[in-house]
Design a protein around this nucleic acid. Structure first.
Ligand SMILES: [Mn+2]
Ligand SMILES: [Mn+2]
Ligand SMILES: [Zn+2]
Ligand SMILES: [Zn+2]
Lengths: 145, 145
DNA sequence: CTTGTATTGCAAACTGTTCGCATTACTGTA
DNA sequence: TACAGTAATGCGAACAGTTTGCAATACAAG
């Protein structure tokens, strides 16, 4: 069960298993799109199973990110977005309606090699952000009308 | 001269040529690293040639970005960074000291083609963000000591 | 069950950014 | 060059997202 799984994840991190933390992680599971602190807050408030303070959510996002259970996604919004840190992938965002989609394709290695070869300053690369922005088909057809 | 050049850029945009705007653009020219509103504010305050209000800087960053004179750079900081919109390039940031470097290498086309081929939702891609994060050689050698 | 400490909730603080409004200064025209 | 109309500025206040201090709570180890 999910509860069990998230509990074990938290235990492995060496942090306490609180109902707030499990609840937050469960929210990530529901939708596969990156979500903000406020977004999580909204989902939990609506579900009414657990009441979690917004500050608690922010604090836990930090904890969970530090332990790499979740990761930040940079999609140019006005708030920080996070998603479960499972498999490596990137995103494309519709700048018209905000829809997102993930894609597994990643050639960061190629980029990194080139950069390391050419740069004197940087020989160690640890992370990369690759995000695309466009117009989703739905918005395209809307705009044609 | 720079003044002249930036004036003409602003005229082409169809906006007024104010000393504040020219001053802001001149700040971008000095350093080739992305800079924030507060950063520009600091530079201008120190230079003492022109006094520009912070709100004015924010407003102008919006105007200049809208006209593609400058562009936003997403480097995960806590404030928005911008740089002159000249030639297309990407950045690598040292997560230890904050140093940045630009690189021209870009294979976004390849990524975009793959995504468009695989995605049903997205056929139109307009922009991309590709940023690398690592440790610069200086910080690497420091950490070894 | 008891105890020690990590975590929570709540309120207040903080930071980066935006906005309203009166004043100023560009720019086009005469 | 003078003038008028309007875009842009400065200033203060507002705002959104996020962080923090502190007392109360609830995990987890013994
Ligand atoms: Mn995703
Ligand atoms: Mn650059
Ligand atoms: Zn990747
Ligand atoms: Zn590119």
């Amino acid at each position: 069960m999910k509860h069990e799984y998230f509990s074990s994840v938290l235990k492995k991190c060496g942090v306490k298993v609180t109902k707030q933390r499990v609840a937050i992680l469960e929210v990530f599971e529901e939708g596969c799109k990156p979500i903000s602190a406020e977004g999580i807050f909204g989902v939990l408030k609506k579900s009414k199973k657990v009441s979690v303070d917004l500050a608690t959510i922010y604090r836990n996002l930090q904890v969970l990110e530090a332990h790499k259970v979740i990761r930040r996604v940079d999609l140019r919004g006005d708030s920080q977005l996070y998603e479960l840190g499972g498999h490596h992938h990137h995103h494309i965002l519709c700048t018209a309606c905000g829809a997102t989609e993930g894609f597994d394709f990643c050639i960061a290695n190629t980029i990194e090699k080139h950069v390391v070869k050419q740069s004197k300053k940087f020989k160690v690369i640890t992370e990369h952000a690759v995000e695309l922005f466009g117009i989703c088909s739905e918005c395209v057809s809307k705009s044609k009308k």
